[in-house]
């Protein structure tokens, strides 16, 4: 591997599908013991090194390297075409990189796994435009997202288990959609859909959340609430937020990575980054 491995204790479970449960998130339970994985090549939760993706000669990602630790929140900013979405695609298995290493929890090679497998490892993704299941009710959307057996035959069953009911209840409460539970998702407002999708993300109980422009189309109040929610989530799990809204990024108050032309341009606290000459030149504009 080209880059030196980050320092840190090796404290991960083997191919863990996400050790932190919703119960822990909601304070019902304390987080379970995190077991060290002797096979882990890196202590980072997400480890991208030298990732290159090109489409017909155009390099969407150019030797991108990024390291996200356990329960770390990171904001990613960058102008259009900087490669933010492509990076998410690589992490979630939608796009195969032409070169580079992508490891999750130090042991799982993301470049070899399919979308479903990666999702089951504990990586959740929220899309830029809210994508929920329009034909289903709000409740059913959450039900489908709940961390459960994903195999086809196991899901030929009717009704809901008490555990499912309890979780759906708690999640609807958290994303403030309790009153809309029986409505079709298609009928929700844009902001409500954003919240529903966040609820679905939580229902998956991922170890790493990839959130693409969560504040887009939200009111100021909703935006502020979202920031609070994300910070709360980030206490127990890693969150990567791609955002254009600088106020929102400031609210998050986390380390910022600036992408430009498929590579990392700068990294650090927002104030430091926004003072960087090159960043100002390519992104903040003059």
């Amino acid at each position: 591997m080209a880059a030196p491995l980050p320092e840190g204790p090796k404290t991960y479970e083997i191919k863990s599908p996400g050790v932190l449960s919703l119960e822990a998130e909601l304070g019902i339970l304390s987080p379970p013991e995190v077991v060290a994985d002797p096979m882990a090549l890196t202590s980072a939760l997400l480890y991208l090194d030298n990732i290159t993706v090109s489409f017909d000669g155009f390099r969407a990602l150019n030797a991108l390297s990024l390291v996200i630790g356990e329960a770390e929140m990171r904001a990613i900013i960058g102008p259009n075409g900087a490669g933010k979405t492509t990076m998410m695609d690589v992490i979630t298995g939608k796009t195969r990189p032409n070169a580079g290493t992508a490891l999750f929890a130090g042991v799982n090679d993301l470049t070899r796994l399919g979308e479903a497998e990666i999702a089951n490892l504990g990586i959740g993704r929220k899309f830029q435009t809210p994508t929920v299941f329009d034909m289903h009710t709000v409740e059913d959307n959450i039900l489908l997202a709940l961390r459960e057996d994903r195999r086809a035959f196991r899901n030929i069953r009717w009704g809901r288990t008490p555990v499912e009911r309890e979780r759906i209840e708690a999640l609807l409460e958290r994303v403030r959609l309790k009153d809309h539970r029986h409505r079709q998702a298609a009928e929700l407002s844009h902001g409500q859909k954003q919240w529903l999708e966040i609820g679905m993300l939580l229902a998956q109980e991922p170890r790493l959340l990839l959130v693409d422009e969560p504040a887009a189309g939200m009111t100021d109040q909703e935006t502020a609430d979202t920031a609070v929610l994300l910070r709360e989530i980030a206490k127990t799990r890693a969150v990567v937020v791609v955002e254009h809204d600088m106020t929102f990024v400031r609210d998050l108050d986390v380390k910022v990575t600036v992408l430009h032309e498929g590579s990392v341009l700068a990294e650090g606290p927002l104030d430091q980054v926004s003072a960087d000459e090159r960043v100002i030149e390519v992104y903040l504009g003059r």
Partner: peptide, 8 residues
């Protein structure tokens, strides 16, 4: 979307 939820 279904795939990203982990369904094969």
């Amino acid at each position: 979307r279904t795939r990203f939820l982990g369904y094969r």
